[in-house]
């Protein structure tokens, strides 16, 4: 699926990365805890989050996240936008809640980038 299709499914606005919308994505990870994202999200995935601060961009940069979808129609602060532009990470904004966003993308074939936790880390 391309980011253009993601935009259509989520009725999303493009905040950063207007020139990168042909990018292909197959997987996604949704969370509001950046440490959770760091531990489990895979490179090349979409990141769905309710956060809008610059740390979302930093976290995505560290992991080579393909693109960020900010949910609940929240608009990030200028420094978040500036950092995403600098690091060339596309940022989309949708009015849907995280649950609905995940549901709509899953329905159209986007998979979780970790389907199942298969180690004991999460329980330790």
């Amino acid at each position: 699926m391309t980011l253009n299709e993601v935009i259509e499914i989520l009725d999303a606005d493009v905040l950063v990365g207007q020139d990168q919308l042909e990018m292909e994505v197959k997987t996604a990870f949704g969370a509001d805890l950046m440490s959770d994202v760091l531990a489990f999200a895979k490179s090349g995935s979409l990141l769905l989050t309710g956060l809008t601060n610059p740390q979302v961009i930093r976290t995505s940069d560290i992991l080579d996240i393909a693109a960020i979808i900010m949910v609940r129609g929240k608009k990030p602060a200028p420094e978040t936008i500036r950092l995403a532009e600098e690091l060339r990470i596309p940022v989309l904004s949708t009015k849907y809640i995280l649950f609905e966003t995940a549901g709509r993308l899953y329905e159209k074939g986007i998979k979780g980038c970790v389907e199942r936790v298969d180690n004991n880390f999460a329980r330790s």
Partner: peptide
């Protein structure tokens, strides 16, 4: 211990402070 945290609300709002950081570093 995972889940243990002394984080302020400011740290939590940023998506950190859920008691996972040191576990991640170790992992």
């Amino acid at each position: 211990q995972e889940g243990y945290s002394t984080a302020t609300s400011k740290i939590r709002e940023m998506g950190f402070g859920a008691g996972m950081g040191l576990c991640n570093i170790k992992k």
